[in-house]
Write a protein that binds this DNA or RNA. Structure first.
Lengths: 144, 144
DNA sequence: TATTATTTTGAGACAGTTTATCAATTTCAA
DNA sequence: TTGAAATTGATAAACTGTCTCAAAATAATA
């Protein structure tokens, strides 16, 4: 399993090294589970990993997912009362259309928007690493 | 003050009438304060109105802001761990370029991006009310 | 204006999510 | 292998937002 997500593991190790943090069994386990998902909540991961390690604490999951965010492997998204952690490496970057009526989420990609983002960034002297684009509104069903 | 936001007050009254709800001193006060802002949290409004009415309850603020959402005057957005209530009648939306090195934030607007967002939304049957676009990267100074 | 049914309020209890605490354990550089 | 430093697990605590309910306010009716 360590070989499966070698690239992300390398990213994590680099981050750990830079910040005097340590690689633990739990961090490996959580990274492995995390990378299998497109996005997941801490609570969901807690239950999912309970079988593999019944003593893995919820606090550790939260700490580790936040660590992944710092390392650039995950991105936190607050929706409703919960936080979803998106797997940044899983796909080409996707943006979200979010229905505020039924909380449905539609993912999309738009090259033209991405290109314009680069343009705006360049004009301001920035180099983009990641971005977040969320459109809030009503889906066709909720509009009525 | 009732005359200042006459249009929104009319919208609210119409909603109240339709749903057998009543116009109260608190609802008027909160609407007036709300319309002065571009967006605000319930907690912030609670403190802001404490001077005018020390006994105005936090629950009432939440109930009323949610009422404004139902009436179409406000829109709730989950941001960080808090909920921000956007003033729908306010336009002039800003997007953000955020430097992960020095935390500098540059605001920008791009009509072309906005137009493409509408296009994506329409293609998926959505009507956009608000959006959030954040570009994360390094500014020219931090890149070196 | 007085009456009355209905809605709203305020205060705090409560519930769900996330973070802080801290003793015991684990990591990793020397 | 040792030992300083970081991490974990369990749970307490904090935080945001909703619910409860008696008392007060509203608005329709007379």
């Amino acid at each position: 399993m360590a070989t499966k997500h070698a690239k992300e593991m390398a990213t994590l190790k680099e981050h750990l090294g830079k910040h005097q943090l340590k690689l633990t069994r739990q961090r490996e386990m959580i990274l492995d589970a995390f990378l299998r998902q497109e996005h997941i909540t801490a609570e969901a991961m807690y239950h999912q990993l309970a079988k593999a390690d019944p003593h893995l604490g919820l606090a550790t999951i939260y700490r580790t997912l936040n660590l992944f965010c710092d390392a650039g492997l995950a991105q936190a998204r607050h929706f409703g009362s919960q936080t979803k952690y998106d797997n940044v490496s899983h796909k080409g970057h996707h943006d979200h259309l979010i229905c505020t009526g039924c909380e449905k989420i539609v993912e999309f990609e738009n090259e033209e928007i991405e290109r314009l983002q680069e343009e705006v960034a360049a004009r301001n002297g920035f180099t983009i690493n990641t971005h977040r684009l969320e459109l809030y509104g009503l889906c066709s069903r909720c509009r009525h």
